[in-house]
Amino acid sequence: MKKLVNDPQHVVTDALVGVEAAYLGRLAVDHEHRVVYRADAPVAGKVALVSGGGSGHEPLHGGFVGPGMLDAACAGEVFTSPTPDQVLAADQHVDAGAGILHIVKNYTGDVMNFDMAVELAEGGSPIATVVTNDDVAVEDSLYTAGRRGIGVTVVVEKIAGAAAEGRRDLSAVADVARRVNDNGRSMGVALTSCTVPAVGRPTFDLAEDELEIGVGIHGEPGRSRGRLGTASEVAEQLVVPITDDLDFTGAPVIAMLSGLGGTPLIELYLMYGEIARILGRRNVTVARTLVGNYITSLEMAGCSLTLVRADDELLDLWDAPVDTPGLRWGA
């Protein structure tokens, strides 16, 4: 393992020291509970947005804390959900009395820990929860833990953040978050594995000419493993399962192509060109685009495509100002 760390067991703690130093005055860090929150929290009259999850997906979630997006994010250990006491601390830091929205990615541990936090909360604002589950690589059935929450989480946090900034009430903010999730689908591919620092060796093995299709953001297995083809072929493997799952024609679409941490931007741009061509051929109209590293898996090479079937209201919320380390415009 070759990584820029002091002690592999203390990566999350040490990274939060860096987050605090880098965004002094904009973000505050509760080191005991590993919570990143808006320095100006609680924001009067505003529904507070709290998310969190395992670390290793940066900028998700701490990098999306700031005006127009999250109020607080709990950082779990690498690829491990945060604990209820972390969530409770995050809620307390940002609760302005107007309600709290928990945005939770659909993983068994994350859902249970956020659920317990809600049960253990004493006093404080009412809490609503939105669980994201957009990964089409997983069969959504009674026989699985359900689809995993991946890229749509970024879009949910942005759009719900704008709704909260506009002083909509808790149920309205939760409704718009659910609408984004219900209309979002994602699919990812991995070219290489990643190495959890505390483990020290790659999570899985992938041969030089192989591709994991439908990989999870923790290196979970995908739908299948295949030979790595051209970018054009990989783009088909991303777009087809998404557009087979939901009709994206006849509405403005938000498209996000996120790198998984180890793929250079030049390859992401190249890939997006292929994706845009295929979407055009399938009569999908992309209204807004995001290409970069937004939800990653440490140093995994590969990418994840997210499409959201939007409307004018969702586009307005998408376009509203946002000022976070990971996403910033109009501010």
Binding site: T83, D85, G109, M112, N113, M116
Partner: peptide
């Protein structure tokens, strides 16, 4: 257990 185990087993054994 809830505050030290994490993952799914923390909430399950904690509960």
């Amino acid at each position: 257990l809830v505050s030290t185990v994490g993952g799914a087993s923390g909430p399950l054994y904690g509960t």
